[in-house]
């Protein structure tokens, strides 16, 4: 068996988007001549995935993650380039190919909306021709993990978002797929359900050897699950490598939000220079005005202690409120372009 389960080379998908002109006269012009703009949703992406791997696909909204998934699941036809998954060409072999994969879309449920959960499982069992023994074993695996049984007879529309997500994941792996795609599986879920979802994914991967591809913009998913990640922005791969290296590059970065609305604009403007003076470091502390009186500082804890900077700010400025967060994906991408991962 081939060790690589996915091999994509130069995978590209462009969309033609209608550009509407403004106003009434524009609408009339649109009736006769139309302007199309080409959106390069996925632009020459090449990567490969090993059997049994858990791969994280991250990127900001609109980066091309979902389009990449749709190219991989055979829903969309690539504009150029090619991909083979488990020996199939997803788009042209769709019907035979999708029998081997499972797909979970965090935003849409594949379950029958008005029917009890178990009815959806039963119809999927028929559709994928799952042998009784496999079906029972997989349901048992899930029952041991999250006690799925208590939802069997509840109509899907009466489940909470978290319960639905878990049922959707269960539904996607009843037929023992070689590969499961999870598109934003934890979107909108609370912390305890997220933990459950991660536990399930890890167990599936370990016990059944299922290859798993997750797209997310929750960096928590990545850190907890995926040894390797691919960062996508504007349809191209920005980073493809071990999560550890990624975390080493960005794990010590923090963003510090300060409410300085009591201060004058020029006072706030002087902050960057002053910080650079007090805390000399290789990469200077970036200061960004948010426009509503809040100021965002991004700093690297390996070089300068966060608490010192915070203390300095509290002493020298009138700060009304403080928030501390991990570095945002947007900042990560900016820094990646600047060579932080090189």
């Amino acid at each position: 068996m081939n060790k690589k389960i996915i091999e994509a080379t130069g995978l590209t998908r462009h969309f033609r988007v209608l550009e509407r002109r403004e106003g009434l006269s524009g609408a009339f012009k649109d009736l006769f001549s139309r302007n199309y703009r080409t959106v390069k949703a996925v632009d020459g992406v090449s990567f490969s995935v090993d059997r049994g791997e858990i791969l994280g696909l991250i990127g900001p909204n609109g980066a091309g993650k979902s389009t990449t998934i749709k190219l991989l699941t055979g829903v969309l036809k690539p504009t150029a380039g090619g991909v083979t998954v488990d020996g199939f060409v997803p788009f042209s072999d769709r019907r035979r190919y999708v029998a081997n994969i499972g797909v979970v879309l965090g935003q849409r449920s594949q379950l029958w909306w008005n029917l009890p959960v178990i009815e959806s499982f039963k119809v999927l069992k028929e559709i994928y021709r799952v042998p009784d023994a496999v079906y029972e074993r997989n349901l048992k695996l899930f029952n041991d993990l999250v006690d799925l049984k208590r939802h069997y007879h509840t109509p899907v529309r009466k489940l909470s978002l978290g319960q639905k997500s878990i049922c959707d994941i269960a539904a996607s792996f009843l037929h023992d797929p070689a590969l499961i795609f999870l598109d934003e599986p934890t979107i909108g879920l609370d912390v305890s359900v997220k933990k459950n979802v991660r536990k399930i994914i890890r167990t599936l991967n370990r016990e059944l050897g299922t290859t798993i591809i997750i797209t997310t913009h929750d960096t928590g998913d990545i850190g907890n699950l995926c040894p390797r990640l691919i960062l996508i922005d504007k349809g191209t791969i920005v980073y493809d490598g071990p999560t550890a290296r990624f975390n080493k590059a960005f794990g010590s970065f923090r963003t510090l939000h300060l409410d300085m609305s009591d201060m004058g604009e020029d006072e706030r403007g002087a902050l960057e220079g002053r910080l650079a003076g007090c805390f000399p470091c290789r990469e200077k502390i970036s200061v960004r005005e948010e426009g509503d009186g809040w100021v965002t500082l991004t700093l690297n804890q390996d070089e300068v202690p966060l608490l010192d900077v915070l203390n300095h700010c509290l002493k020298t400025c009138r700060v009304k409120d403080v928030k501390i967060e991990d570095i945002s994906l947007e900042e990560v991408i900016i820094k990646s372009y600047e060579g932080a991962l090189a």
């Binding site: 749709k70 699941t73 055979g74 829903v75 769709r94 019907r95 035979r96 190919y97 999708v98 029998a99 994969i101 797909v103 879309l105 849409r108 594949q110 559709i127 994928y128």
Partner: peptide
């Protein structure tokens, strides 16, 4: 609405 992808993920016509 894009829900058609759910049907395309099934190994059916």
């Amino acid at each position: 609405r894009g829900d058609i992808v759910l049907r395309l993920h099934l190994p059916l016509d």
